[in-house]
Design a protein around this nucleic acid. Structure first.
Lengths: 220, 220
DNA sequence: TTAATATTCAATTAATCACTTGAATGATAG
DNA sequence: CTATCATTCAAGTGATTAATTGAATATTAA
């Protein structure tokens, strides 16, 4: 008797979406997928989980409508379903930073406070980069850079930065960015650059947020 | 060995928030709490669950930072932690409607298509209500009306609407609203009003979305 | 104090989840 | 065709979850 009402069914469906976000492993996958599409194999090695486990997480994300899969040869490439997913993740971060003391503390201790100098806002950066006043540095892996980056940015993946410092002009300020607000790579980059005598700051967010803000993205 | 990185801890925390949203019962509670604060008792009877079960859901929401509790006498009143929560719920709905075929279908079949005439946009309503061109009808329970409503709105809870039709001027168009986009009460109201010869339409959203849009809210 | 009421806690059950392991599918290369 | 590789499926384990029931706590009313 008493069938579920349409509203109950709807809430059940929405709950499935939220539940798919309710796992640190899947949030990790989504952060990577926000940079561009990736095969199951790549995702497994980037997150450090087994391929089978990664595949199952990806299926849960796909069933929730958060990702899409594309089969090419023997590879399956997953990507985010759309910008709504990025917006939902941003809303989730915002809620956490505002209402969960533990998150606020973590963000302050490990992120905000490491970046002594004020991070650069996206709109400011574009302007100054076009005038040639700063070097924009993308420290993500090459695949992610190729899938889209800040126009004019230089790509030096974080683990190569130490050896390739010579490629950066010493006089100009460097603005580094990576995957997003909770990605540590740009923090590490700024610390390394400052130790070596560069003037360096972080972009306040990563490329997905840049793109979502409607700012121009360069490919390849 | 290998301690979790700050990012992992952060994602774990964010996942806890998302997991708290990952239950239809809790989404139901949040929709009610979006209208204003409520005691455990009231929430239990409004959702049709046991008090103990409701209390446990509320604690999960509170631990995730989504709700706050206030003790007054022997009652504990819960409320939403802030507008970020509403924004996250809006992002969740948006994601679902865009990327989950089942949700899109349900919304079309049970919601959009029942409302033949185009729903009224919030900004339009405020203008026309001030000019006295429409009667704004709030069909939510009295407590929710008192906690905040569209300025000048008349409150007739949906279950009393049949008997109290006389209170509405027959010539003016009626615009009805309730808790939110997935709340059926305003649909029922519009159907009833039209059967009785009124010109009636729905407001596109409920009061929480109205308030979130920065539109004025009247109390008491 | 005693009784009544609102809420939370504790214990239980059935269901679901994350992860592992090993096998099954499906596409490509030799 | 056979071997190889990427991915998915299926089964199993330990942990977590939603809901129920009954007891415990805390506030108010008599």
């Amino acid at each position: 008797m008493s069938n579920p009402t349409p509203k109950q069914i709807l809430f059940e469906q929405l709950a499935r979406i939220a539940a798919a976000l309710g796992s640190a492993a899947r949030l990790d996958l989504l952060e990577i997928l926000a940079q561009g599409e990736r095969s199951v194999d790549q995702l497994a090695s980037l997150t450090g989980h087994s391929v089978a486990n990664t595949s199952q997480h990806l299926q849960k994300l796909r069933q929730a409508g958060l990702t899409l899969g594309r089969k090419e040869g023997q590879y399956v490439f997953y990507r985010l379903a759309g910008d709504e997913v990025l917006r939902m993740l941003a809303a989730l971060r915002q809620t956490g930073e505002t209402h969960v003391a533990e998150i606020d503390r973590l963000v302050h201790d490990y992120f905000s406070s490491r970046d002594q100098m004020e991070p650069v806002a996206a709109a400011d950066l574009l302007d100054r980069a076009r005038k040639g006043l700063v070097t924009v540095l993308d420290v993500r892996p090459a695949e992610e850079f190729e899938a889209g980056h800040v126009p004019g940015a230089v790509n030096i993946p974080i683990e190569q930065l130490g050896k390739r410092l010579g490629e950066l002009p010493k006089r100009k300020e460097v603005v580094a960015y990576c995957r997003g607000p909770y990605c540590l790579m740009s923090y590490e980059a700024v610390e390394l650059l400052r130790r070596k005598g560069h003037k360096a700051r972080r972009l306040e967010n990563g490329l997905p947020e840049w793109r979502l803000a409607g700012l121009p993205v360069e490919l390849g």
